[in-house]
């Protein structure tokens, strides 16, 4: 058993999944707002980066790591609501390109402001959890207390989102507003408020991913979510953009694909893992792996 956990293939699987859950969270956050507002938010990564800067840098002032984490997520919630109200609401009913352009512009503003305020140097956030890998009977296992926490946090967030949508009254209203806004409005659902809540939820989920990235070995810097957003986007498309489960699985697949390319081919080419997966999926199943085939309305 110990030999199995330390085998090269398990090294790759652990490392791939650790990266993959980050992509899964970002993909999940993209799917939440895509379902409700049909906007693909290109600023999702930058918003999460910004919220994690606001929260995590409080550690410099002696705030506890866990409080910083909670603060970041709270800032993410506020930020998501603000974005929907101010930037996205005027665009409903306009051509798709308008929302894309606005969110791309927002991405540019956030990264520039973050560089102006916090500089572009990488910050390492000290975590109370050890990032040193375990040893099992003298053999290395690519898991550390931090990686296990990372998995646990991601699973808790995913279960929370799934539970919220499936079992609560709020979740029912959110789903109704996404599926049939007019009918929902007639039945007394405050659709506009639901859209804002959807964006808040999504931004908070994205922020969780950003705090994991910030606490990990790469640290916190203004463009740290760029590549992750692209991978998360690919994960969401691979999963079909409508399916939260598909997004999560897509994220894990990309994490694994990148890790295996890194080990067996070339470290430079690892970012291509997602793109290769995307092209293959688009060729075979353009509607995504986990959607029921729905024709586009004319």
């Amino acid at each position: 058993m110990s030999q199995f956990l330390s085998s090269p293939i398990m090294h790759n699987i652990f490392a791939g999944l650790a990266q993959g859950v980050i992509y899964s969270l970002v993909a999940l956050s993209l799917v939440i707002i895509w379902q409700s507002t049909h906007v693909l938010n290109f600023a999702q990564g930058a918003m999460a980066m910004f919220a994690s800067y606001v929260g995590m840098t409080e550690i410099d002032r002696g705030l506890n790591y866990w409080l910083c984490l909670v603060l970041s997520i709270f800032v993410g919630l506020l930020f998501g609501g603000f974005t929907e109200r101010v930037l996205i609401r005027p665009l409903y009913g306009k051509p798709e390109i308008n929302a894309i352009v606005v969110t791309v512009g927002f991405l540019g503003v956030l990264e520039a402001v973050a560089q102006a305020v916090w500089t572009s140097t990488t910050r390492n956030i000290a975590t109370p959890l050890s990032q040193i890998y375990f040893h099992n009977q003298g053999r290395l296992v690519l898991l550390s207390p931090f990686v296990i926490f990372q998995f646990a946090l991601a699973i808790v967030i995913m279960l929370f989102v799934a539970g919220l949508f499936r079992f609560t009254d709020l979740g029912l209203q959110l789903r109704a507003s996404a599926l049939a806004p007019e009918v929902a409005r007639l039945l007394g659902v405050r659709v506009n408020r639901m859209l804002t809540i959807g964006w808040m939820l999504s931004a908070a989920v994205g922020t969780v991913a950003a705090t994991i990235v910030a606490s990990g070995s790469f640290g916190l810097y203004p463009s740290d979510m760029d590549g992750i957003l692209i991978a998360g986007f690919i994960a969401a498309v691979v999963g079909g953009l409508e399916s939260p489960v598909g997004a999560v699985i897509g994220g894990l697949l990309i994490g694994l694909a990148e890790q295996f390319i890194l080990s067996y081919w070339s470290a430079d080419l690892a970012p291509l893992g997602g793109i290769i997966l995307l092209v293959v999926v688009l060729m075979l199943r353009p509607q995504g792996l986990f959607t029921k085939s729905v024709s586009r309305r004319v």
């Binding site: 606005v102 512009g105 927002f106 991405l107 540019g108 503003v109 956030l110 520039a112 402001v113 102006a116």
Partner: peptide, 8 residues
């Protein structure tokens, strides 16, 4: 970057 983004 800030001005371009806001203008956009």
């Amino acid at each position: 970057g800030i001005i371009f983004g806001i203008l956009l």
